[in-house]
C-alpha cells in the first residue's frame, strides 16, 4: 500500500481532532465549574508533561537537574520564555562539559 495513503489517514485524523472542538465551541461556557476547570487545564497539562520528564530530557540526570534549577529560578523572576528556555539548555550543556 502506498505510504501516501497512510500519511493522509494520519493527517486527517489528527486534524479532525483539533478542528472539530476548535470550531464547534463558539459560545462562552457558562458553568462556573467547567470554566474553572478549563482555566486550570493548561497549567495541569504542562506540569504533568514536565515533571518528571524534564529530569530525563538530556540523558543525564545531573545536567537535567542543573537545567531545571536554572529554569525555575529564572522563571520565578518572570523572565521571558526564550531566556528561560535557552538558559536551561545552556546550563545543561555547560554542566555536561564540566562532567566530562
Amino acid at each position: 500500500m502506498s505510504i501516501w495513503i497512510y500519511i493522509a489517514v494520519m493527517a486527517a485524523v489528527t486534524y479532525l481532532i483539533r478542528v472539530i472542538p476548535f470550531t464547534l465551541f463558539r459560545k462562552k461556557i457558562k458553568s462556573q465549574l467547567l470554566q474553572s476547570f478549563l482555566y486550570y487545564v493548561p497549567y495541569a497539562v504542562l506540569s504533568a508533561m514536565t515533571i518528571p520528564a524534564i529530569f530525563y530530557s538530556t540523558g543525564n540526570m545531573t545536567t537535567a537537574l542543573t537545567g531545571t534549577a536554572v529554569a525555575l529560578v529564572l522563571a520565578y523572576f518572570d523572565l521571558p520564555l526564550i531566556v528561560v528556555a535557552l538558559a536551561a539548555s545552556a546550563s545543561a550543556f555547560l554542566c555536561g562539559l564540566l562532567l566530562v
Binding site: 493548561p42 497549567y43 504542562l46 506540569s47 508533561m49 514536565t50 520528564a53 524534564i54 530530557s57 538530556t58 540523558g59 543525564n60 545536567t63 537535567a64 537545567g67 531545571t68 529554569a71 525555575l72 529564572l74 522563571a75 520565578y76 518572570d78 523572565l79 521571558p80 520564555l81 526564550i82 531566556v83 528561560v84 528556555a85 535557552l86 538558559a87 536551561a88 539548555s89 545552556a90 545543561a92 550543556f93 555536561g96 562539559l97
Partner: peptide
C-alpha cells in the same frame, strides 16, 4: 552533547509558563 542539551529547551519553556 548539543542535541542532548537541546532536549531540555521545551521543558524550560513550560516552566517559564507555569511558574509566574
Amino acid at each position: 552533547s548539543v542535541t542532548a542539551a537541546l532536549g531540555i529547551v521545551l521543558y524550560g519553556m513550560f516552566i517559564a509558563i507555569i511558574i509566574p
